Amino acid sequence: MQTKTIQPIHVLCFETRTSLKEILQYVRVEARRLYRDAVRNDLEITGPVYWIYQGADGQADTVFTLTIALPVTPPTHTINSPYQLKQLEAFECVSEDLYGNWDGLSNTYGSLFGEIMSRKLVPSGQNREIYLNMDFENPERNITEVQIGIVK
């Protein structure tokens, strides 16, 4: 686990209100649409897809804001997109990489929140998952960076 500051990132993104119980409808759907839309609008993709959870507490029924974001270079031209361009602000966080199946996400979050509590840090209410490598056929090859926001 490490503590770090993520610098602002310009993204093309999808936002919605959802719950963990309803979130599967966006998996393998919105990210693909974001990639297609970025290419169609001649945007330069500059990083992997982010899933950002604002207000999620791990409970299946809690409604929170989900942002699925694709880093892009700010365009110099007008784009025609159902998605929004925005800048993610600087983000203070503790992070840990998960290598393998996403079934391990709960353990990774547990480890990070345990460390936050032991170090008496204050969670910001925003968590991010950065999908560095996604392999749906061989999930043991997945690499996911989990970031939990902290108040500085």
Rank of each mutant, 00 (worst) to 15 (best):
H77G: 07
Q84D: 08
Y53F: 15
E137F: 07
V151N: 03
R28A: 15
C13M: 14
E96L: 15
H10E: 05
S19Q: 09
S19G: 07
I148C: 12
T5D: 05
L98Q: 00
G100I: 08
C13D: 08
L105F: 08
I150F: 01
I68V: 14
D135P: 03
H10V: 07
N127P: 04
Y53N: 08
S106Y: 12
P139T: 11
L12K: 01
G104Q: 10
L66H: 04
T46D: 01
Y131W: 07
A90H: 02
S19D: 09
Q84Y: 04
L20D: 06
R28H: 15
N107W: 09
V146R: 00
T5S: 09
G58Q: 10
S95P: 05
A90L: 05
V146M: 02
V146L: 05
K120Y: 12
I148R: 00
Y35Q: 09
I9N: 01
P139I: 09
D97T: 15
L20Q: 10
E115R: 14
G114C: 13
T108N: 08
V122F: 06
T46W: 04
N107Y: 11
T16G: 01
P71S: 04
Q2H: 11
C13I: 07
R36Q: 14
R128F: 06
E96G: 13
R33Y: 12
D61C: 09
N138E: 14
G110M: 12
T18C: 04
G100T: 07
N80K: 10
P75G: 09
Y109I: 06
F91Y: 14
T76A: 12
D37Q: 10
W102H: 15
I6T: 15
E140D: 15
E44I: 11
M134N: 06
Y99E: 15
T144V: 12
Q84C: 06
I130T: 08
G125F: 02
L132C: 10
E44R: 07
Q84A: 11
E89K: 03
T62C: 13
N142T: 12
T46N: 06
I45Q: 03
V29L: 13
V49F: 03
V63T: 05
F14S: 00
K120T: 09
V94G: 01
V63D: 04
Y99I: 14
N101P: 04
F14N: 00
D61K: 10
P82E: 13
G55Y: 07
N127R: 02
Q54V: 09
R119Q: 13
T78M: 06
E92H: 09
V94A: 06
T46H: 02
P71F: 01
S19C: 10
N133V: 12
Y83C: 01
S95N: 11
